[in-house]
């Protein structure tokens, strides 16, 4: 059976979501904030690449990836200031 990238994407998203759920059980702090944002960034990239099909549009993918990463970095910066 060949591995459908879409199926892999869904499995990855569910795994990452469960990891996010796990984060909600541990005491909050800078590490949790950074992990939570990293998970969000990964999930966002999968949705953009696989669900929205940017995997086949390399220039757009790069643009969206960069902006999304920058945005998450900004949020992380604000989270670290708490």
């Amino acid at each position: 059976m060949t591995r459908d990238p879409l199926l892999m994407a869904w499995a990855a998203l569910v795994t990452l979501s469960l990891a996010g759920a796990g984060l909600s059980l541990v005491p909050a702090g800078s590490v949790v904030s950074l992990l939570a944002l990293s998970l969000a960034l990964l999930k966002g990239r999968i949705i953009l690449h696989r669900y929205l099909g940017l995997a086949h549009a390399p220039r757009w993918r790069r643009g969206f990836d960069m902006v999304l990463a920058g945005f998450c970095a900004g949020l992380a910066g604000l989270a670290l200031l708490i």
């Binding site: 979501s17 904030s33 939570a36 969000a40 945005f71 998450c72």
Partner: peptide, 11 residues
């Protein structure tokens, strides 16, 4: 997925 950590997790 972007809203979830900011609203629910980060504190």
């Amino acid at each position: 997925v972007l809203l979830f950590p900011v609203v629910y997790l980060i504190r």
